[in-house]
């Protein structure tokens, strides 16, 4: 079996994919927080440019963003290797999508909660982390988990720039075996890779569902006593 024979080669690619997607998820979250802060800024001079940038990132195809960062940044004197170039471009794209998810989550918490936090002496960061964010989590998490699976899938774009992740390993393997043995094993190898990615994304969704249940719990109990603070905003992050 071809797959078993080149097991370690493909596993190396899978490890690189895992590393690349972790970098993209971390970077995407960082940019999402920065953009969300920019979108909620008081000053219009800050808010409008951030809004424009976020909209452009969401409307330009991800493939174009990835290629653009790779080809244009060297002109500005910033040269990255393919790994960090793809990590940067996908992170910025993820940040633009994540910013809207976070902002919608924060807005879904009734303003009374913020006032209640203030009147209890929880100002600024304390109010945000102890009062607002836990209540926004049930709204933020479902679309955010699907964004994370999108970012994991987007790590395959690294292959376009030549990062040695799972898809690129598969391409190399197919090229080599086609030359060495004749007859393309493409359907077998791409098929197995599809299944590997599916398993990866499925595990992420399963893990995400666990977190969602965790954050839904305490409020379910409180709902029995007080008015339900059910999330009213339903968001869907699609791989766009």
């Amino acid at each position: 079996m071809l797959l078993l024979e080149f097991q370690s080669f493909l596993l190396g690619g899978l490890l690189n994919t895992l590393f690349l997607s972790s970098v993209m998820i971390a970077g995407g979250t960082l940019f999402a927080v920065i953009f969300a802060a920019g979108l909620s800024a008081q000053s219009a001079w800050l808010r409008r440019p951030v809004y424009g940038l976020v909209e452009c990132l969401r409307d330009i195809p991800l493939m174009v963003t990835v290629l653009m960062v790779y080809f244009v940044l060297p002109h500005a004197g910033l040269s990255f290797n393919p790994f960090w170039s793809s990590a940067l471009s996908v992170s910025v794209w993820g940040g633009a999508n994540g910013a809207h998810i976070i902002r919608a989550g924060l807005l879904s918490v009734p303003s009374g909660q913020r006032e209640a936090a203030l009147s209890s002496g929880l100002r600024g960061w304390k109010g945000l982390f102890l009062v607002i964010l836990p209540q926004a989590m049930p709204v933020i998490l479902p679309p955010y988990v699907s964004l994370i699976t999108s970012l994991t899938q987007a790590s395959s774009l690294g292959a376009v720039l030549g990062v040695n992740e799972l898809l690129r390993s598969a391409q190399i393997l197919i090229e080599q075996t086609t030359i060495a043995r004749g007859g393309s094993p493409a359907y077998l190898i791409y098929g197995s890779i599809l299944i590997a990615y599916f398993a990866l994304c499925w595990s992420i969704s399963a893990l995400g569902a666990k977190f969602e249940r965790h954050f839904a719990k305490p409020y379910l109990r409180a709902n029995g006593r007080t008015q339900p603070a059910a999330p009213t905003v339903a968001l869907q992050a699609t791989m766009t």
Partner: peptide
Amino acid sequence: GTPYLVQIFF
């Protein structure tokens, strides 16, 4: 659940 790019290649 699978990357679009891999689907294209497949």
